[in-house]
Design a protein around this nucleic acid. Sequence first.
DNA 1: ACCTAAGTTGTCAACAGACGACATCTTCTT
DNA 2: AAGAAGATGTCGTCTGTTGACAACTTAGGT
Lengths: 222, 222
Amino acid sequence: MTSSTLHKSRSAERALHLLDTVVTAGSISLGDAARAVDLPTSTALRHLRALEHDGYLDRDPHGMFSVGPTFLRLALTSLREGPAAHLTTAARPHLDRLAETTGESAYLAVRERSRAVYIATAESTRAIRHVGWVGRTVPLSGTAVGTTLTGDGEATVLRNTGGVEPDVAAAVAPVMGPDGTVVAAISVLGPSSRLDDTSTDTVTTAVLVAAEALSRDLRGPT
Amino acid sequence: MTSSTLHKSRSAERALHLLDTVVTAGSISLGDAARAVDLPTSTALRHLRALEHDGYLDRDPHGMFSVGPTFLRLALTSLREGPAAHLTTAARPHLDRLAETTGESAYLAVRERSRAVYIATAESTRAIRHVGWVGRTVPLSGTAVGTTLTGDGEATVLRNTGGVEPDVAAAVAPVMGPDGTVVAAISVLGPSSRLDDTSTDTVTTAVLVAAEALSRDLRGPT
DNA sequence: ACCTAAGTTGTCAACAGACGACATCTTCTT
DNA sequence: AAGAAGATGTCGTCTGTTGACAACTTAGGT
């Protein structure tokens, strides 16, 4: 281990990075993938082949790589079971209620390294609304979700973020695990035209209440 | 097994295997994981740590490993986009219709190495029905789905499998991709008491029709 | 408090096998 | 046809990974 990595396995890291790249891209050629992770094509090919061999990736007749059945299986399993599933299923009713009472889209987000990932949603019924943010990530810094996830728990914010998307306002509250740490954040996103004004208080408290209710659920049952 | 593989990366393979193990287990300790993949704990720890470092895995205060946010992000992404998503979304209406007309649970399955994975479902409304098979795998040999997925495309079968679960009957039909190869299988599963008798023809043709309709959809648009 | 099992950190030598330059073979483009 | 861009195959070198071992630190159980 020469350079800056004091721990880790180079090849594994590269393979994972490649996997990430392919999954994120949806479908990608060898060359593009190699370029994306900055590896010689020969090396990239070897890894992609290995991943394909294990079913993590698939390859269409044109040589494009895409997600394979093995990964799919894991994806489905991880979303049906595991701690994350508890979170999302536990959050579902609260998100639904939030979306219903506020009329906006409600999201559940967790932290991933230096970003936040939206892992569940209950969408607004309105025409103008947030859609399709599940699976998306936003930076921690400069966003309401971010500061809430990194905060010590207390914060509840309503901000016109503007960082990620213009004209978007968010009300966010932290969700605590049984041990008192912040494990997720519930947020309501909507056009700043609707969230900035009168509804502010209503929405803010609604989010707070939902987050606290979810936290209680996580503490209480099972 | 040391060297039957002419290509591949040991560490990457191990890391992936570990990842698979953890995801499948939902939550697992270092020792158990190491035992599961047959590695010394020191090596397993190194890998698990690396995976944790990259966010693929998470660790609770008790040292248990579970799926992490990065993997979650990939899981959600892979299910929202990518070729597999096309399949499932394209299949959804057909599965729903199948479930509705037959009254049984309808599944979409793809091949993973020597197994079949159920990747989507429309569940029966009846009390006695198949549930929760999404993400599950069954062997290719000895099952109706298996033979259909490995077949050259023509086969449509109604069998009392018995292999995987007793008293379960299945009607399966192959779904063809634009290039004429079998890319998936649509199957209806239900108690053999209901599927063995009179409804046989109805169900069989319904499945066949659905599979052909889906194949056509895959050929047609885009 | 004791004892045991599980997890953690560190070291290190040896071997496996990952690396990537390069040569070759396929497609597409023009 | 010619050329370019991409995909694949080959191979010697060197690097990174491995796993045994030992020393501690928790965490549980009695």
